[in-house]
Amino acid sequence: MRLFSRLATEQNSIAIKPENMTARSIKSKRNKPKSNTRRQPKPKARRSAKSAKKKNVRFPDSFKHKLMLAAIELTGLSITLVSAIIVLLGYSAEHFTGTQFLTSLLPFAVGVLVLILFASFLFLIWWKLRRSLQGRAVMLMPVFSVILAVGSGKMIMNDQFAIAFDHFRMLVGGKQEVRRVTLAHQVYAAYRRQGVGAMQQMVARGEKYSPLVQDAARRFHIDPDLLLGIAAAESSFLPRNSSDGGRGLFQITRVPKIVENEAQKHFSGQKLSIIDDRYNAHLAAATFKYYLDEMQGDLLLGLLAYNIGPANGGLRFIMQKYGVTDFTTIQPYLQHLPRDYPIRVLSYALAFRLWRQEGSLPAYQEGSNAVRIQRIGIPGLTSDF
């Protein structure tokens, strides 16, 4: 019995020991610090994340910088190229004016072809130069393009450019541009016939009414010099009641009801009188805007419709009766109506613009005044450039 009990205890001790060893070994493995080889990848991963983050921050800045330089370079080159095209084509159109094929049409076509080839050659040289300097001087090409654009701007300010631009506009505009130029020179001639002295008196009288006229023009989106020209042609800035029914600064007679309502919107709650200069100016601005829209934005026809008013069915009825579409073709049919009215209005408007921009009224026929006045342009008829 003793022997049997001793053998049983020895077997139990042998069975228990492996369990204790495995538990201890598991605990020791859990408590054992991890080797350095397993920690090494984490710092690398952190560094790569930081570097990627830095790259993501720097990339947009670099891209925006390059995009800005490219935009500056492209803008400068575009300004230079457009200016050169206008000058070359303008002078070519002046030199090769005519309808003969061998002396006019063919040389002009060959000149356009040479211009295209020359522009392509310059673009190729520019591109190669840009690629060769891209790594060494990133700012050089944009700066050079800006210098070219500034040089083109100085050329545009020259009076000779105005002449070339007129020929270029004539080339592109065709019959419409020829008609506009013809009417513009009628206005310049009327300005010259009036004389500097008479125009200065008109401008001096108009200074008193200029603020209220400008306010009315702004409310109805009209050139203020043009509205001042209408007042000058209507009353010479001497408000009165005329025998034909005209009243006030703009000699208002009958106006459409819709025009009256538009003018009254700016005088809510006020007692209105047609002889009040401010209300009279608003009525005139609303009336002219109404007729200008009716004539689809044609300035000469809009002024003529303003002057004719609803009499004889209005200008639209006259145009439909004779089958005319513009101011040039309707003039022969206006025997008993003031067909020179738009020209007089625009000559006065030109005087007000010259006074506002130049501070004086230069004599059209003296020196280079004609070119300078044409460069300033007629309000509503010619544009500044």
Score class of each variant (00 low, 15 high):
residue 378 I to W: 09
residue 45 A to K: 06
residue 286 A to N: 04
residue 369 N to V: 05
residue 365 Q to N: 12
residue 100 Q to H: 13
residue 295 M to G: 05
residue 358 E to N: 00
residue 6 R to M: 04
residue 63 F to M: 14
residue 380 G to N: 10
residue 33 P to W: 13
residue 328 T to Y: 03
residue 262 E to G: 02
residue 197 G to N: 05
residue 176 Q to T: 02
residue 119 A to E: 04
residue 66 K to L: 08
residue 280 N to E: 04
residue 93 A to Q: 11
residue 222 I to G: 03
residue 272 L to S: 01
residue 74 L to Q: 10
residue 26 I to R: 09
residue 232 A to H: 11
residue 372 R to E: 04
residue 142 P to L: 02
residue 64 K to Q: 09
residue 326 D to E: 06
residue 28 S to V: 11
residue 320 Q to P: 07
residue 74 L to W: 05
residue 33 P to S: 08
residue 213 V to D: 08
residue 277 D to F: 01
residue 208 K to D: 11
residue 151 G to D: 03
residue 190 A to H: 02
residue 27 K to V: 07
residue 271 K to Q: 10
residue 152 S to G: 12
residue 330 I to D: 03
residue 171 L to F: 15
residue 160 Q to A: 07
residue 153 G to E: 13
residue 306 Y to W: 02
residue 187 V to E: 02
residue 35 S to F: 07
residue 97 T to I: 11
residue 208 K to T: 09
residue 330 I to C: 01
residue 15 A to G: 05
residue 42 K to V: 15
residue 101 F to C: 06
residue 299 L to H: 00
residue 375 R to F: 14
residue 330 I to W: 01
residue 202 M to I: 12
residue 91 Y to C: 13
residue 97 T to S: 10
residue 190 A to V: 02
residue 257 K to W: 07
residue 87 V to K: 08
residue 184 A to R: 03
residue 83 S to E: 10
residue 97 T to R: 12
residue 13 S to K: 08
residue 11 Q to H: 09
residue 292 L to I: 05
residue 280 N to D: 00
residue 345 V to K: 03
residue 29 K to L: 15
residue 129 L to S: 11
residue 57 V to M: 05
residue 148 L to Q: 15
residue 172 V to C: 01
residue 90 G to E: 02
residue 350 L to W: 05
residue 382 T to Q: 11
residue 75 T to Q: 04
residue 266 H to R: 13
residue 278 R to D: 14
residue 332 P to E: 06
residue 50 K to F: 14
residue 329 T to N: 12
residue 360 S to K: 08
residue 340 D to Q: 11
residue 132 S to H: 15
residue 128 K to I: 00
residue 237 F to C: 09
residue 277 D to G: 10
residue 327 F to V: 03
residue 355 W to E: 06
residue 13 S to Q: 10
residue 155 M to V: 14
residue 135 G to S: 14
residue 371 V to H: 06
residue 12 N to V: 15
residue 31 N to G: 05
residue 37 T to Y: 12
residue 111 G to S: 11
residue 27 K to N: 10
residue 157 M to Y: 09
residue 59 F to C: 06
residue 29 K to T: 14
residue 326 D to N: 15
residue 362 P to S: 02
residue 296 Q to V: 13
residue 259 V to A: 09
residue 120 S to N: 11
residue 116 I to T: 00
residue 120 S to H: 06
residue 29 K to Q: 09
residue 215 D to F: 07
residue 82 V to R: 04
residue 341 Y to S: 08
residue 36 N to P: 03
residue 254 R to V: 12
residue 12 N to Q: 14
residue 352 F to Q: 03
residue 151 G to Q: 02
residue 297 G to D: 13
residue 29 K to H: 09
residue 356 R to D: 07
residue 130 R to Y: 15
residue 380 G to T: 14
residue 149 A to D: 05
residue 218 R to S: 03
residue 47 R to G: 06
residue 225 D to S: 14
residue 146 V to R: 07
residue 302 G to R: 01
residue 174 G to M: 01
residue 22 T to R: 06
residue 70 A to R: 14
residue 284 A to P: 12
residue 152 S to E: 07
residue 320 Q to G: 15
